[in-house]
Design a protein around this nucleic acid. Structure first.
Lengths: 208, 208
DNA sequence: GTCTATATCGCGATAGAC
DNA sequence: GTCTATCGCGATATAGAC
């Protein structure tokens, strides 16, 4: 069986485009730039992709594929805090790899309705996955549910927002993003969940 | 004294630009579009602004001015939960009025370093204001501080992220944003702070 | 599949009249 | 202050040779 050592042209375009988009933003990067950086002619690029939108769609398809791998559960055994932590880290890694996207997502949707639809489906799927995850979490006794389930939903929404915007928050503050920062993002989620976590039971001392 | 009934030209440009930016995104809106929508010639627009970047800067100066009005404190009297709520609502109103900005902020910074610097100063100022606010909050006994001040900082960071990304979250879900949604954003913040709020003291029942 | 050459278009920006 | 006219440029996209 042949070992593929070089990327196929379409993949080279996608790979190059991600780098440039992350570096300069989608608006500043033209198809000419991408072709040039990928060391091919503009005509060749257009042979593989109709336009820039289509390149972006192809990139996001890759991102979605990665995400689908994150929240699938071990079919057996207890779900632990460590399971949650590692998934959050993976989440941050994906966000960082395709950071141009969270930086401009809504604007990209404004320019490409199809992208918005695709993303919407993807988000719902991710949310469902996470809900299943949390369900297992509760069953494992790691998370103490407040009787008011509405509180739980709000907390999870808050956690979702933090998880998806922590890196953007850092960037807006001019902070250089490194792997250690991912941990801090997890700590932020932890701080929200702490009162409901661990071995707390009614009447226990609060965790602080 | 003369009552000004029509906006001065520069303000008309700014006002029109905000509408168009919110509607289509900054990338899709050219100076020509703005001039046309404001019913003036491109040349006239360029008489008042050097380029699109400068228009954006002028818009954001207006936004910052509004923000400075939000977190200044009543110099006397206790600070209540209602004070916090009303400020959060004002916060959402401003974000919504200039929503094109939070949709593309980081990308805009990539294209305009000066904008980044200005915003950085503004953010730090806002954060300082909020810290002062929280300080008063603690003094008023509304907020029970965990002895570990680090927890408090994390919680406030989480709240900041939620407050600044709640509307974006709604938009990414395809939800139509209305004034009622602002309340839900406040509820989200509440859900994070609840364990530390109100009349809780060591040994009390948890609030759920 | 990949290249070169080229057509078209709209944007940013300025000059100069009024 | 405002307009008209216009220039130069770069981006998208296609045609046709190899």
């Amino acid at each position: 069986m042949k070992v593929v050592t070089v990327l196929r042209t379409a993949d080279r375009i996608i790979h190059t485009a991600v780098q440039l988009f992350n570096q300069h933003g989608t608006g500043k990067v033209s198809t000419n730039h991408i072709a040039s950086a990928a060391q091919m002619s503009p005509g060749n690029l257009y042979y593989h992709f109709r336009n820039k939108e289509e390149i972006i769609r192809a990139i996001l398809d890759q991102m979605y594929a990665k995400w689908n791998g994150v929240w699938n559960l071990p079919s057996e055994g207890k779900v632990t805090l460590e399971d949650l932590r590692s998934r959050l880290i993976m989440n941050f890694e994906i966000l960082w790899e395709f950071r141009f996207f969270y930086r401009e997502a809504i604007a990209l949707f404004q320019a490409d309705e199809q992208l918005r639809q695709t993303h919407l489906r993807m988000m719902n799927s991710r949310m469902a996955d996470q809900e299943a995850f949390v369900q297992r979490f509760v069953e494992a006794g790691v998370l103490t549910i407040p009787p008011d389930r509405d509180i739980l939903r709000k907390l999870l929404t808050a956690c979702w927002i933090v998880a998806n915007n922590w890196l953007a928050f850092l960037e807006m503050n001019g902070t250089i993003v490194t792997a250690e920062r991912f941990q801090e993002g997890v700590a932020l989620i932890w701080s929200i969940l702490t009162p409901y976590l661990a071995n707390r039971r009614e009447g226990d001392e609060p965790p602080w």
